[in-house]
Design a protein around this nucleic acid. Structure first.
Lengths: 168, 168
DNA sequence: CAGTATCCGGTGCGATACTG
DNA sequence: CAGTATCGCACCGGATACTG
């Protein structure tokens, strides 16, 4: 039996389910190491070579090497060999589809950082529509009609993979 | 002078700007320590008391204490004292507005984790509209008309706070 | 219940230096 | 240019115990 809810408990209550298969935990398991998300930020910004990345990040080379390998093992990044005419072989790092799909995470972090960390109105980058140049932002939209909803309209409910805790 | 772009360089190139004021780095500076985002996940799920959080996370108590203090110092979480009638005083942790605004980051992590980490179609939680019950997801929308755009339509350009690198 | 304090072995990080 | 090797130190994780 749980304590009486201090604040109006939702029902069904998410706290009655396991956290072992939490997707946030799964994501952070790969992305949560130091430097990793900054590596990805740079990859999204078009940085593809080891040294340039290292110079921008200021991270220890050994660490960067380790992170890139981890991302490669996770299928987020692909090491691609190439050779410019007359130059010696090199290789670069590229985002896979799985890696490109991290875009919204980066955008969410950027937007929050812009709102709460940096000086207001001083964002170092803007997201715009490639065609029109109109600003682009992240929003919660409702399936079906694609209408935008606010965070307050949002509700989390147990999904198909929810695992109830024993002794419910 | 930079190396000739291996892949078609955008222009203006984001790599010509400083990373010192990067909002992603700013956000990760606060959120990037181990356990922190999982603590926030639990707070969003309605967990407010220390011991319950500790039990769900499995994190060392000392660590959890440290993380909560850090979040409190950052203005993301607020320690609130309360007393149930006839019980002794306690206190709980609540998200501030700054904390609630982390919602999209958590949702982005969740969605990516659901797509790439867990078994397909087995998400432990679903996001739905509180009124209609329709599924809700994160999307990139264009300012003005609020139309959804794809990641491919997206472009990052230097913003008002961009700091050019010397020797451009 | 809600922490803080202490210890201790392991891991991760950062700085530097070296190699192909 | 693209890493690997090494080394001290800080921090983490886990256990245990103590305080209010």
């Amino acid at each position: 039996m749980r304590e009486p809810p201090v604040t109006g408990g939702r029902s069904p209550d998410l706290r009655d389910y396991e956290t072992s298969n939490c997707p946030v935990a799964g994501a952070m398991d790969i992305l949560g190491e130091k430097w990793t998300l900054l590596v990805l930020r740079d990859l999204f910004a078009g940085v593809r070579r080891f040294d340039e990345m290292q110079a921008r990040l200021g991270a220890p080379r050994a660490l960067l090497s380790k992170r890139l390998r981890r991302l490669e093992d996770a299928g987020i990044v692909q090491r691609v060999a190439y050779r410019e005419p007359g130059a010696r072989a090199r290789h670069e790092y590229r985002l896979t589809d799985k890696g490109k799909d991290l875009n919204t995470i980066l955008v969410a972090l950027k937007e929050w950082g812009d709102r709460w960390v940096n000086a207001p109105g001083r964002a170092p980058t803007d997201l715009v529509d490639r065609e029109t140049g109109a600003p682009v932002r992240l929003a919660l939209v409702r399936g079906g009609d694609g209408r935008e909803v606010t965070a307050r309209d949002l509700r989390m409910v147990p999904g198909p993979g929810a695992i109830p805790k024993r002794q419910a």
